[in-house]
Design a protein around this nucleic acid. Structure first.
Lengths: 208, 208, 208, 208
DNA sequence: AATGAATGAGGATTCATTCAT
DNA sequence: AATGAATGAATCCTCATTCAT
């Protein structure tokens, strides 16, 4: 379960808080994607959320809070789409390609948001950054654990100390589909991209 | 030869322009790395450059110009450090590891700057972005051409249509050393990182 | 009914908008008269209006907007003072002297403002200028219609194609009382000025 | 002979000063006409003059000096074109229409400049304004003296105390051709304008 | 709980003028 | 006498945040 930073609010009803923050995050996500964090004003976020300028600040203490909530939400979405596949009880060597395919598909669907995270994380105050990076790391961890299982059952022939790096490689190569899209989409479909990356990875893992 | 966007200036002596812009870029690079593009004021850049507020604007037309110059300079530095190795006339299968080592070393040295590019390119107006992305692509192209040679002389056994993607993979995995440093540097030294990435790559390339 | 350019504002209560803009216009009018448009800063206008710097910009989008509002208001004042006389149902040959007297009196009262319009209209962006010139023309039109009636009922013996020019002459000779005041006020009282101009005009009109 | 304010210069050769100031005034006149006084920078004036930024300030002490020189030059041009006609020794009643025709023609030729004076005189510091207004008044004086002669020889039947005002009227109605041109030129040619204004004036003067 | 008007610190940019060469 | 690089005070405008209603 992901650790999430608490954000203070004077509003008592927690369900209402959840609802309003959802409105805010949805609006902010849209605007940040279009115009960037710095290019978006809190007024715009309020309007897009359907809230008053003041109301926004009942549910959030600063613009940075909003960015944090957005980042948090994006990670949740990635995880949410990834988890079902991870739980499957197929053989490891079969799971990995499936997970990769899901992962790349998620990235493809959430392109704008992945981009957003890459570009705006550094705008967060460092205390928030901690949380966001933690979430980011969790994704790598999924791949790590698959790799470990694969080594354990003999499917993969790589050294233990390579695992961590490979997990990062996978994560970053997936995200690359979002942040290098202008170039990559010209030459590859998502399917081609997925197939090539998967087969390259299998060559690394199986030495074939 | 890199195409570079011309930036208008009323100053006539081109040598002086070069000199002052160097001061400006150096100051801006430092400040942007520390506080981000949006977190840095033009006044700070001027002061750090040792110029008056007005003088800054004799050499640059906007804050965005400065960011562009910074990006441009960073790419130049990467290329400058990369080129000597690329020119070497060793066998392709020997060149690649050398190039990788150089590339990763450059990234390591210019960490802050690579990070900077990743985070701030999107703050450029689109006309500038064009140039910056072009430069970025040139780096991938170096790797592409090495891969092509390797295929040609039989050193590498990969399909032609995989080349482009692999070149991007290499570029991004290198840059990852900068933008995931907080995690990676905890577990790997630059040397270990280089060695693992190289060997993984050779497995992909040679099918061993 | 005068067409007036709409100026966007985020403030919702139209009555408040009216009130605040009135404050702003009053302050700006005073300052522009004293120091000219370019010599007045937006901060000064804000302070003189009793508003914060930021508040000013809730009711106005630029300094040019303020100038526009000032011009608009001046024309409204001139018209407001002129209309009662125009509506009177006296004979045309009697109305004209009355209208002239009113017109010159208005100019005398609003001297500074008339001057202001003459000097600063050209500082408006062309889209605004359109509106201001339209308003200006309306004043000439009042005189035109009086002259036409006079011709129709035989009071005035001038050709139809002279009417327009005479209307302009009247307008400009009136405004002259404001923009040549330094010289004229030395030699004539408003009453003398009015009497002479009126009698000269009647000679033109009646050929006497 | 017009009194002209002296402007200090470190340059010794008076002929050179005259030459350079001519360049400056010509450049400034063009630019002020196009973009207004405030919209024109001293740098632009220097460039258009073919001088260096610094050189400009060898011949002029401030931007206001330039405006003054421009105003002065415009008045000289008006006078220069007007004088030949004034000297003529025809009968007064014949001279006036000729003078009017010349005056209106000059205004027509120098439209932009007349406009310029109207709009920018107030930008002058008050000490300069004095001189400019004096020059302006001289033009009225020409008309005054013609009117006086006409009264003296019985051509005109108007009271002495009307003369001054009529002289101003004439001046302003002429200038109107420049500053109301957008409206007037739509309805009248210069010739028609001249003819109507002249005949209206003769009605005033001769009571016919 | 909701609102939106009010605020002022802060930021990018301009430009008349100076002065060393 | 000519130059043009250097300057910083000044300006318009923005926007995150607050607070009275």
């Amino acid at each position: 379960m992901a650790i999430t930073r608490n954000i203070a609010t004077p509003v008592k009803d927690p369900e209402l808080v959840r609802l309003r923050r959802e409105q805010i995050v949805q609006a902010a996500t849209k605007l940040f994607s279009q115009k960037g964090y710095h290019g978006t004003t809190t007024r715009e976020i309020a309007r897009e959320s359907g809230l008053g300028t003041g109301t926004l600040y009942e549910y959030v203490n600063s613009k940075e809070d909003i960015l944090y909530l957005v980042c948090d939400m994006i990670h949740s979405q990635v995880e949410e789409k990834l988890l079902p596949v991870l739980i499957s009880d197929a053989k490891v060597s079969e799971i990995l390609p499936m997970v990769l395919a899901s992962f790349f598909r998620v990235i493809d669907e959430l392109q704008e948001l992945v981009l957003l995270i890459y570009q705006e994380t550094k705008s967060l105050p460092s205390e928030y950054m901690h949380y966001v990076l933690k979430r980011e790391e969790e994704i790598s961890n999924y791949f790590s654990s698959i790799l470990h299982s694969g080594i354990a059952d003999g499917s993969f022939s790589i050294a233990e100390d390579v695992v961590l790096l490979m997990a990062h490689n996978i994560t970053v190569l997936g995200q690359m589909w979002a942040f290098r899209r202008w170039t990559l989409h010209r030459s590859y479909t998502l399917e081609a991209f997925t197939e090539i990356q998967t087969s390259l990875l299998m060559r690394e893992l199986c030495g074939i």
